[in-house]
Design a protein around this nucleic acid. Sequence first.
DNA 1: GACCTCATGTTGACAATGTCAATATAGTCG
DNA 2: CGACTATATTGACATTGTCAACATGAGGTC
Lengths: 192, 192
Amino acid sequence: MAYHHGNARAALLAAAAELLEGEGAARLSLRQCAERAGLSRQAPYNHFADKEALLAELVREGYQRLGERLRSDARPGDAPLDRLARAAGIYIAFGQGTPALFRLMFGKELVDLSRHDEARQAASAALAELSAIVAAMAPATDTREVSLVGWSLVHGYTSLCIETGLEGPAQRKHRSDLFARTIEALARAPAA
Amino acid sequence: MAYHHGNARAALLAAAAELLEGEGAARLSLRQCAERAGLSRQAPYNHFADKEALLAELVREGYQRLGERLRSDARPGDAPLDRLARAAGIYIAFGQGTPALFRLMFGKELVDLSRHDEARQAASAALAELSAIVAAMAPATDTREVSLVGWSLVHGYTSLCIETGLEGPAQRKHRSDLFARTIEALARAPAA
DNA sequence: GACCTCATGTTGACAATGTCAATATAGTCG
DNA sequence: CGACTATATTGACATTGTCAACATGAGGTC
């Protein structure tokens, strides 16, 4: 290896991403990432302010990917119910496929988004995608409430599957449909 | 302080509980707890196998408290909808009132319940309380699905409030009612 | 080419933490 | 009283985040 790595930042992020699901974010060490990237233990500090900053970049990438998946799932002539069911499936699959990343993205103990603008923006963009999909199920006066229920529901289910083993990927499709039906039932119910 | 503390275990747990919300569980150190309890750094190991075991005891206590709150909220002649709305409020209040404890209880990175029988039993008992309350909303054939939606919903909302600042305690009552209505709408919807 | 600047890289160092090991204390029992 | 044992302290060690000092080399200027 030449003195200058030439691609140190990317190598560090790649190393971190590779280690994340095995170690979990709390146990992931900067030294471990540096070693895996063929760098010394101080090298990450040339590219990231501290450990949190490196994790925040992983978070940003995660939201970008999630948002992209939601966006690219749009189909011409989609019925809102079908669109929502598929979006729920995408969200759940994302969480179940990369549990440690999901936990990092939606937790504030290790990465506080208020301190990381770019990651926060990526989060907002991804969640706006989901929100719009859910809101399409509702009368205009109820979109905020229905979006909130939709997000809470799919997020809660995903988190509980990851953290408590509530259910596995085999149930995903069935549950996505159940959640879409739930939102539909709420959107149709008479307002309080 | 006499050589033998006389109440070391309880003092350690009290110290941990006091420090938990300030530090967060990941940053909470056993040494800090020991110091706060007036003990040396090795003393916790006389009472707990390791750091995780001490945290697991906090988790057990947390579930016990949550379960007790749900149980003691029962009122004679309660309508299922009212009972559910109040239960949702209790769950959300618990999470918002002790966010770090909530995160610890419902996360498996720091405490894996499969390794801590008593904590796991306390969790099952508390969640069975919630499940029964939600299930009372549903026809007998649908109780599993409705319970799953109920838990996912209230859990997701609580978690998102804690981790993303989705909403604050001022909205709790209104949202509890919304969630109860959502479950009601689902329970009444024609099955797929 | 020599010199300067600066971003990036290495190594030494330090404090903090989890946990192991050796030693000390004191309560209980026969 | 001696033996035993649970509990407590202190020494030690490996690991980790991060600071500081020093080293490297690419790019720019003269």
